[in-house]
Amino acid sequence: MNRRILAALLSAVLLGSVAVGYTVLRARPAPAVDRAGITLDAPGLLLRDTRTGRLAVQDSGGERAGSALGCARLYAAAGTGVCLREGLASAQLVLLGSDLTERRSIPLNGVPSRARVSGSGRMVSWTVFVTGDSYNGGRFSTRSGILDTRTGTLAGNLENFTVDGRPPDPDANVWGVTFAVDDNRFYATLSTGGHRSLVRGDFAARDLHPLKDNVECPSLSPDGTRIAYKKALPNGGWRLTVLNLADLAETPLAETRSVDDQAAWLDDRTVAYGLPHSGTGADVWAVPADGTGTPRLLAADADSPAPLH
């Protein structure tokens, strides 16, 4: 009983502080002051400032430090950053060291969409939109790739992986990669024949195994047990949902607005995501991963969140 009261009290305190944080953020948008010495090592929230299009880091007090690094999509883990950068000749996949120095840049085809780094910082993935595939009459298709930064192995097109040992159909598209802790297994969306499925990939074996239909943009929880994803709704929107990998049970999260993003787990209990706001730009929100609670604003005028530990 005592414990329950304590929990209730704690919740109230937390909610109160969230409310305060919300007020502060709305009243005084975090100043994205360019600051030297931003690192991917200090705790905080990596994000893209949607007013400047540049990489920024928000500390636990809600204060934001901006950088000069323009990115369309971001992610980071364990000191490895990835910035998908639009460019004149070609978009670029830019690998960043923890001090934001550019370690390597690889020309990307198409328009940057998703980016992810494995928890160890070793594996990097990206998704771009391309046009010109004959099977869909000039509409956008996606392409995804994975780089093993330790061995240098580069898989430029996951559509070249097999599906249960066989070549996928020609209309296959893959997007939204998320890595497991062993730096070999990963999850992604495979679209083929009108189905969008969650697949489990094996990087070494170059194979994809379908697990469940109607799961897009998966994001694996740090403990490896659950997938946060966007579930397509009949009305054309997406519901942020969590899938339990052990029994494939689905839990819709408390965010009822349509979320078109690959969510990022802040910890094993919370996922963060970008939501466009009116006009241009977006805000980053967070919601409990168990279906309870309500969404809270984490960072105004920002998207592409990634927790820095």
Binding site: L108, N109, G110, G156, N157, N160
Partner: peptide
Amino acid sequence: EDNFSSVNQ
């Protein structure tokens, strides 16, 4: 150039 994988390799 490549044939539109994700990288121009």
